[in-house]
């Protein structure tokens, strides 16, 4: 069995020590710190990316909240403006209507007064016509002369009956 050849032990042990020792140094000093650093860096990067994403999410939520608030505010404002305008318009309308009413009333009253005056005028004219007619009829029927005052009195009496 070649494994038990004692003369071969020394060279194997010496070269094992040389190769394993130098491999250990290369691993411990160069290779492993490098790999560890890269893995560490990646872990940090992922963590910071996650942090950033979390922050951005928070910001987005804040922005949405602000937007919602602004929307609600402007909606309320629009509502208030609409209400105000409606009230103003209705007040103005009311005033206009009242003014118009008064004007119409005035005109009606004036017209009524005119009508009354015309009626009175007409009535007085009727009295005169009636008196003249009565005088003429009486004169032609009975031929007598009648005083104008008598006739007027008679007509007024007859008209008022």
């Amino acid at each position: 069995m070649p494994q038990l050849e004692i003369a071969d032990f020394a060279p194997q042990l010496i070269w094992l020590a040389i190769t394993f020792g130098s491999l250990y140094l290369v691993m411990a000093r160069i290779a492993l710190p490098r790999i560890g650093m890269v893995i560490e860096e990646r872990r940090d990067r992922i963590a910071s990316d996650l942090d950033q994403a979390e922050q951005l999410k928070q910001k987005t939520e804040e922005a949405i909240a602000t937007y919602e608030q602004a929307l609600a505010e402007s909606r309320a404002k629009a509502h208030a403006i609409a209400q105000e305008t409606r009230e103003k318009i209705s007040t103005e309308l009311e005033a206009e209507r009242m003014k118009l009413d008064r004007k119409l009333l005035d005109q009606t009253e004036a017209a009524e007064a005119r009508i009354d005056a015309a009626k009175d005028d007409a009535l007085s004219q009727i009295k005169d016509v009636a008196a003249t007619t009565t005088e003429a009829i009486v004169t032609s029927l009975i031929g007598g002369k009648l005083t104008k005052r008598d006739v007027s009195a008679a007509v007024t009496k007859a008209l008022s009956e």
Binding site: A7, D8, A10, P11, Q12, I14, W15, L16, T19, F20, S22, L23, V26, M27, I30, A31, L32, R34, I35
Partner: peptide
Amino acid sequence: DASFTNSSLFMVIAAILISSFLI
């Protein structure tokens, strides 16, 4: 006796392969 043997050769090859692979 520190002779460079076939065993030493493959120890060296293994060490070089590992180092170059990782570096």
